[in-house]
Design a protein around this nucleic acid. Structure first.
Lengths: 146, 146
DNA sequence: GTATTTGCAAAAAGTTTGCAGGGAA
DNA sequence: TTCCCTGCAAACTTTTTGCAAATAC
């Protein structure tokens, strides 16, 4: 189901600002802050208020169409979310975030921790950090030149 | 090694504000924001500037003595960090955060994702969310009463 | 046509910085 | 005694709110 449909079927309208924000995040794998989104859209000739960016993100996040990505340095940003349960792997060089599925790999860890802590686990947050294929190549080339 | 030693050995002083912040976080498993820390300390008769809270947290985080915990609702706070590599499991009812070790359980997942995405993975963020033993009991009791 | 959504302006909340005085080692 | 650290005040950044005009459906 397209994000337009998700909006409609939940009784929300497909307005300009919501479209701009969604299209930008879909075209750009880098997590972006509200301010960055606002600036990028303004510069590309889509004048909109920053307030609309905040409100669009709040709604899109609630509907699961975008989600937060946290960086090791404490910064965070929004990326288009594939919908459903997924995680992100983030490049520490170019900051691109790629989604990956699979929580079944976690079940044995979760069971172990449940036994150890006596918690009932119902949800989790998992992100991986590393270097993407493009940056591996770029970094290797840079070394060669020296 | 105690946090006092970590400070000293890295050339930092064991000052009042740093001590207050560290002691508060150690005595309290709930993740706290800078403002919450400031208010709690002020109310318990340890007058200090909020600026010192920010600066103490920045330093303590850099030294790995405290770390960030992210909640599913987007809020976040600091908890005393056990040092070394660990993760947190957070109670969705009382917000207590307990540390647990063990990233070896993740290695098969990481290998799978590396193969799929061609990333080189070097770090990760993992948090579990659930209900702690105390809250399980409290919630069960509450149901009985109805 | 109607109810939702936008954008402005302003307020509120959160964070950072410069600098003089105070305190740990 | 020395240099690091604190706290204040102010600046700055980020986020939220109220309300009239605009717009999707």
């Amino acid at each position: 189901m397209s994000w337009q449909n998700v909006l409609s079927e939940n009784g929300y309208r497909v307005s300009g600002p919501r479209r701009y924000v969604m299209q930008l995040l879909e075209s750009n794998a880098q997590p972006m802050t509200p301010l960055e989104i606002y600036q990028a859209l303004s510069e590309s000739g889509r004048p909109l208020g920053i307030v609309s960016v905040y409100r669009a993100l709040e709604l899109l996040a609630e509907l699961g169409l975008v989600c937060m990505v946290y960086n090791p340095d404490g910064s965070a940003g929004y990326v288009a979310g594939a919908g459903g349960h997924h995680h992100h792997i983030v490049c520490q060089n170019c900051h691109r975030a790629i989604a990956f599925a699979g929580s079944e790999d976690l079940s044995s860890l979760i069971q172990r921790v449940e036994k150890e802590t006596k918690f009932h686990v119902s949800d989790h947050l998992l992100q991986l950090y590393g270097i993407c294929p493009d940056c591996q190549k770029a970094l290797a080339d840079a070394v060669e030149e020296n």
